[in-house]
Amino acid sequence: MRLYFKYLKILLKAQMQYRISFWLLTLGQFFVPLSIFVSLYFLFERFGNIKGWSFFEVALCFSVANMAFAITECFARGFDAFSRMVSAGEFDRVLVRPRSTVIQVMGSRFEFTRVGRLLQSIGVLIWALMNLPIDWNAAKAITLVLMVVSGVFIFTGIFVLAATLCFWTIQGIEVANIFTDGGREMSQYPLDIYKKWIARFFTFVIPFGCMNYYPLMYVLDRVEGNEILYMLSPLCGILFVFPCFLVWRIGVRHYRSTGS
Rank of each mutant, 00 (worst) to 15 (best):
Arg77Asp: 09
Phe79Ala: 10
Ser83His: 08
Arg84Lys: 13
Met85His: 06
Met85Ala: 03
Val86Ala: 01
Ala88Thr: 14
Ala88Ile: 06
Leu95Val: 08
Val96Asp: 04
Val96Lys: 03
Arg97Ile: 02
Pro98Glu: 05
Pro98His: 01
Arg99Cys: 02
Ser100Gly: 09
Ile103Ala: 12
Gly107Ala: 11
Phe110Ala: 02
Phe110Thr: 03
Phe110Gln: 11
Phe112Ser: 04
Phe112His: 12
Thr113Lys: 08
Thr113Asp: 10
Val115Lys: 01
Gly116Gln: 09
Arg117Ala: 13
Leu119Tyr: 05
Leu119Asn: 10
Gly123Ile: 07
Val124Thr: 07
Ile126Asp: 10
Ile126Gln: 01
Asn131Leu: 01
Asn131Tyr: 01
Asn131Gln: 07
Trp136Tyr: 07
Trp136Pro: 04
Trp136His: 13
Asn137Ser: 09
Ala138Ile: 07
Lys140Gln: 06
Ala141Trp: 03
Thr143Val: 07
Leu144Tyr: 05
Leu146Arg: 12
Leu146Ile: 05
Val149Leu: 13
Ser150Trp: 02
Ser150Met: 08
Val152Asp: 04
Phe153Pro: 00
Phe153Gln: 02
Ile154Ser: 05
Ile158Pro: 06
Phe159Met: 02
Val160Thr: 00
Ala163Asp: 09
Leu165Ala: 08
Phe167Thr: 05
Trp168Ile: 05
Ile170Cys: 07
Gln171Trp: 15
Gly172Pro: 12
Ile173Thr: 03
Ile173Leu: 11
Glu174Cys: 03
Val175Ser: 14
Ala176Arg: 04
Phe179Trp: 08
Phe179Ile: 06
Phe179Ala: 10
Phe179Thr: 14
Gly183Leu: 12
Gly183His: 09
Arg184Lys: 13
Met186Asn: 05
Pro190Ala: 00
Leu191Val: 07
Leu191Cys: 08
Leu191Asn: 14
Asp192Arg: 12
Trp197Val: 14
Trp197Gln: 12
Ala199Gly: 13
Arg200Pro: 05
